[in-house]
Computed example of a mutant assay.
Amino acid sequence: MEANQLQKILMELRFTAGLSEGDQQKLAAISRLKEFPAGGTLFTEGSEHKDLYVIRSGRVEICMTIPARGCLPVLTLEAGDLVGWSTVLQQGEMTATVGAIEDTEVIAINAEELRALCEADHDIGYQIMQRIAKSLSQRLVACRLQVLDMYGEHPGQTHHAQKGAAE
């Protein structure tokens, strides 16, 4: 796929929308379109990975390995979301396994080239890192809500009532 087509796609995605045309051209030059069938694996926990993915279409599920319980789903992501952000920060091994729940198309951005671009052009670097931080912030909130749902109070039950029952 040529860079002009990739640039048009990048303009439509939540993660890259609003970047200048020049910045989108720079990203398109280090990107490629990649497809994963439903049931396919984008990457596995513990593996080295070279790309940051921005989901164009489809849905993926992030799973983490829990001893004696296997690989458990922790979050579902969809169009516009990021996958594989830790590779941009040179975190080493991937911390989760990501699988396609349905046919999924992503923009794969080479993380090494993205880091070099951000270092060479601090303006785009600031924009990209700000967007990664926003994405991570949203993911953290989603995880907190899951924890509250799992361990939180149930309808009609208050913290005070729980405390009183244990005493």
Rank of each mutant, 00 (worst) to 15 (best):
G84C: 03
P67N: 08
R69P: 05
S31N: 00
V60I: 07
L42D: 06
E45Y: 10
R115F: 02
E93I: 14
T87L: 13
T16Q: 04
N110G: 04
Q90Y: 12
L27K: 05
A100T: 07
L75W: 01
Q25P: 01
A29W: 01
E21M: 00
D103I: 00
F36R: 05
V88K: 12
A29K: 05
F43D: 05
F15G: 03
Y53R: 13
D51Q: 09
L33V: 08
A96I: 12
S47E: 15
R14D: 14
A108V: 02
A29G: 08
Q25S: 11
P73M: 10
A38V: 02
D81Y: 09
E61K: 13
P73S: 13
D123S: 11
F36W: 01
G92S: 08
Q127G: 00
G80C: 00
I101A: 12
D81C: 02
E45H: 03
Q24I: 09
L13F: 07
R32A: 02
T95L: 15
A116E: 09
I30T: 02
L27S: 05
C118Y: 06
A79D: 07
A100S: 10
Q130A: 14
P73T: 03
I107V: 15
S57K: 14
M64G: 09
S86N: 14
G46E: 04
R32D: 01
T76S: 08
T87V: 15
F43L: 12
D51R: 11
A68F: 07
A68K: 13
G22T: 07
D103K: 04
Q90G: 15
L19K: 05
Q25T: 00
H122C: 03
A120Y: 09
R59E: 13
L33W: 02
T104Y: 10
V98Y: 14
Y126D: 04
I109Y: 11
L13E: 11
G70A: 05
P37M: 02
E21Y: 04
I30C: 06
A116G: 02
A29Y: 01
D23W: 04
I55H: 06
V106G: 06
E119G: 03
S57A: 15
G58T: 01
G22L: 04
A108D: 05
M64W: 08
I132G: 09
T41M: 03
T97W: 14
G125H: 05
E105F: 01
V54L: 07
S57I: 03
M64R: 15
I66D: 11
R131L: 08
A96V: 10
R69V: 08
I101R: 08
A29L: 04
E61Y: 08
T44A: 14
S31V: 04
W85Y: 11
